[in-house]
């Protein structure tokens, strides 16, 4: 992984995109006397919604790249125990994404910390500067890093199942972005809530909420658990298919 140029650029791009979207979002909100409203931690971390797309490409390329170039045969010849080869890929990927995700998430938070007070979100109005010493904010930060890592693993698992990179990206992004949109057409409120509970993105990003927790479809850590479940299922299915299929 270290020797291919693509992943490094993707990681840098992911960090840049995450911080840029967060900074952009925080610099357009204003807090007037009529009311500020909203969850500033969640807003500062909104860049994760874009960053995850780049994480997904990275994860997909780790495995689809090998399929398309035929490198997978070399890998599997060198390491005939496929499950272990796959696990090694997953662990390396998780480590790299967690490291880059930490930079991206902390960068976003820092941007929010500097930008928000200039738009009226000051301590006197009940919006103290974002700080990791604050319990919910710390949880949102750590959770966002974990979320990015889980998305990487989910994408890796789907890539191992689907093998073709473009189709995998389509499936992964469809799974992430489409479910929240579809949940809005469901007329039945229970069905809508259910879809938000099982969607990997809407459930997992519950970890970023710091206010109004009772109105969430499910609690923050349970939400991240749903995303983890998706990732685990994809990894297991991908690992099994890798084992029983011809490369």
């Amino acid at each position: 992984m270290r020797t291919v140029a693509g992943p490094l650029w993707l990681l840098l791009g992911m960090i840049a995109a995450t911080v840029a979207l967060s900074a952009g979002a925080t610099s357009v909100v204003t807090c007037t006397s009529a009311g500020c409203g909203g969850d500033m931690t969640k807003l500062s971390l909104i860049g994760v919604e874009l960053g995850q797309a780049l994480v997904a490409i990275l994860a997909v390329l780790v495995i689809s790249g090998e399929y398309s170039s035929g490198m997978i045969r070399t890998t599997l010849t060198a390491m005939p125990r496929r499950t272990i080869a796959f696990a090694a890929k997953a662990i390396t990927l998780a480590g790299v994404v967690a490291a880059a995700g930490t930079l991206a998430v902390l960068g976003s938070l820092l941007a929010g910390r500097f930008i928000l007070p200039r738009h009226g979100f000051t301590a006197t109005r009940g919006y103290p500067a974002l700080s990791l010493a604050d319990g919910p904010t710390l949880r949102a930060t750590v959770g966002s890093i974990l979320y990015l890592t889980l998305i990487a693993l989910l994408s890796l698992g789907i890539a191992a199942i689907v093998r073709d990179s473009a189709t995998t990206i389509g499936v992964v992004l469809g799974l992430l972005y489409l479910l929240p949109i579809l949940s809005q057409v469901i007329g039945n409120p229970h069905g809508q809530r259910l879809l938000q509970q099982i969607g990997p993105m809407s459930a997992g990003l519950a970890i970023q909420a710091t206010t109004n927790l009772h109105s969430l479809p499910l609690s923050p850590w349970a939400g991240l658990g749903v995303t983890a479940g998706w990732a685990a299922a994809a990894l297991v299915a991908g690992g099994l298919l890798l084992r029983i299929r011809d490369a």
């Binding site: 909100v29 490409i57 689809s64 389509g170 949109i181």
Partner: peptide, 25 residues
């Protein structure tokens, strides 16, 4: 393929996700 698909998808779908965000002005 992966880069192209992601670029076009993010450009097409992401704005809708963002405006669904309640505190977007």
């Amino acid at each position: 393929s992966a880069g192209a698909v992601t670029t076009v998808l993010a450009a097409t779908v992401l704005p809708y996700i963002l405006i669904a965000n309640p505190f977007m002005p």
